[in-house]
C-alpha cells in the first residue's frame, strides 16, 4: 500500500511543481515532494539517504529557493506551455528507458548482481575491518572514502564559487530598465493572494516575534547538540558528518531567520566561516596524507595507530568531523552569500 501510494504522490507532486505558475507555491510543493521522497527512502531502508534528504531537500534547498525568490520575482509568466522539441526529447529518453528496463531484473530480488557481487563483502567485513556498525558509514568513510573526499570538495567548491561570484561583485547594470514594466501578459494566478510588504513596521516587531524568538532560543542548543550527535553517531546508525553538518548549519540559518541577519553574523562571522570551509576539507585530506607517513596508502586509516580497528574508528571519526565542519560552514555560506548580495552590490 505505502509502496504504491508514495511513488504515486511523488508523481503528482512532480507534475504539479511544473504546472503551478506561482513560484512560491511551486517551491512549497517541491518541499513536500522532498518529504515524500524521504518517506520513500525510509521505506526502502535507506536511512542515511533519508536523513540527508531531510536536511538537504526539505531544508536547505527550500530555504535557498525562498531566498532567491525574494531577490527575483515570484510569478512565472504565462506562455504557450507545450514545447514540441522538449517533448520529443523527453519522449525519446522515456523510450530508451522503457526499452532498457525490459530486461532489468526485478526489484527486491535478492539474487541481482548488486546484492551478490561487491556489497556482501562490505556487509561481512565492515565491522571487522573498520569498526563501523553502520555499513553505509564504513563504505562512505573508508572503502569509498576517496569519493567522500571528492564529495566534500564539491561542497567546498560550491561555497568558493558562490563567494567568487557574489562577494563584492561590482559591475551591475545600474540604469537597468526592468523588464517587468514593459512585459505584459502576466498570468492571473489564484495563488498569489499575498503581496509581500517590503518593510515591516518597526515598532511592532518585538511583540510579533516573541514566540518565535523564545522557542528558537530554547531550541538552539538542542539543535546544535543534535547536530554534533548526528556527526558522531554515524558509526552506529544513520547520520554522519554530512548530515550533522547540515543540521549545524541549519541552526545558524534558523537563528538568522528569527533574529535577523545581522544578529546571526555576530554569532558566526563571515571570516570565521570562510576559514572553516577550508579547514574541514584540510582535516579530511590531512588525515589521508598522515596515513602516507605511517606507511599506508592514501586514506588508509588503519595504519595510524597500532590497533588497526581502533585506528580506523579514530580515522573515520576524524574525517566525519572534517566533513561536518566543512558542510556546516558551506551551508552557512550558501545562506550568507545569497542573502548578502545587495549589501555589497
Amino acid at each position: 500500500m505505502i509502496d504504491v501510494a508514495i511513488p504515486l504522490f511523488l508523481v503528482v507532486c512532480g507534475i504539479a511543481v511544473l504546472l503551478v505558475k506561482d513560484l512560491m507555491s511551486s517551491i512549497m510543493i517541491f518541499s513536500v515532494y522532498s518529504l515524500l521522497i524521504a518517506i520513500e527512502w525510509v521505506r526502502l531502508n535507506a536511512i542515511d539517504v533519508a536523513i540527508t534528504e531531510a536536511a538537504v531537500g526539505a531544508g536547505i534547498s527550500t530555504v535557498l529557493f525562498m531566498i532567491i525568490l525574494s531577490r527575483t520575482k515570484s510569478v512565472e509568466e504565462c506562455k504557450k506551455s507545450i514545447s514540441i522539441p522538449a517533448l520529443l526529447v523527453a519522449v525519446g529518453v522515456a523510450g530508451v528507458l522503457l526499452y532498457g528496463s525490459v530486461d532489468l531484473p526485478n526489484l527486491r530480488d535478492p539474487n541481482i548482481a548488486p546484492s551478490t557481487h561487491v556489497s556482501p563483502y562490505y556487509l561481512e567485513n565492515a565491522y571487522k575491518q573498520t569498526g563501523q556498525e553502520n555499513a553505509v558509514a564504513a563504505i562512505l568513510a573508508s572503502y569509498r572514502g576517496y569519493d567522500t573526499l571528492g564529495e566534500t570538495t564539491v561542497v567546498a567548491t560550491a561555497a568558493f564559487c558562490l563567494i567568487l561570484l557574489l562577494r563584492g561583485r561590482r559591475h551591475t547594470n545600474k540604469d537597468l530598465k526592468k523588464y517587468e514594466d514593459t512585459s505584459i501578459n502576466k498570468c492571473t494566478v489564484k495563488g498569489v493572494g499575498i503581496k509581500p510588504t517590503k518593510t515591516s513596521p518597526p515598532g511592532s516587531e518585538q511583540d510579533k516575534d516573541i514566540i518565535k524568538k523564545t522557542v528558537t532560543k530554547f531550541l538552539m542548543p538542542f539543535i546544535q547538540l543534535f547536530g554534533l550527535y548526528v556527526i558522531v553517531h554515524g558509526e552506529l546508525g544513520p547520520g554522519g558528518g554530512f548530515q550533522g553538518g547540515v543540521v549545524l548549519g541549519v541552526s545558524i540559518i534558523v537563528y538568522s531567520l528569527v533574529f535577523g541577519f545581522k544578529e546571526a553574523q555576530q554569532r558566526m562571522s563571515v571570516k570565521a566561516k570562510d576559514l572553516l570551509v577550508s579547514s574541514g576539507v584540510l582535516i579530511y585530506g590531512g588525515i589521508g596524507v598522515l596515513a602516507l607517513f605511517f606507511g599506508g596508502n592514501y586514506l588508509q586509516y588503519n595504519v595510524l595507530l597500532p590497533d588497526p580497528k581502533f585506528a580506523s574508528i579514530i580515522g573515520i571519526l576524524g574525517i566525519e568531523i572534517g566533513v561536518g565542519i566543512t558542510v556546516a560552514a558551506v551551508m552557512i555560506t550558501l545562506f550568507y552569500e545569497t542573502v548578502r548580495i545587495d549589501a555589497n552590490g
Binding site: T62, V63, M66, T197, K198, K212, L257, F261, V339
Partner: peptide
C-alpha cells in the same frame, strides 16, 4: 526551518 523561511518571505519578502 522550511516553514520559517516561507513565513519570513510572506511577512517581509526579504531575508537580510
Amino acid at each position: 526551518t522550511a516553514v520559517l523561511a516561507f513565513l519570513k518571505y510572506v511577512e517581509s519578502g526579504r531575508f537580510d
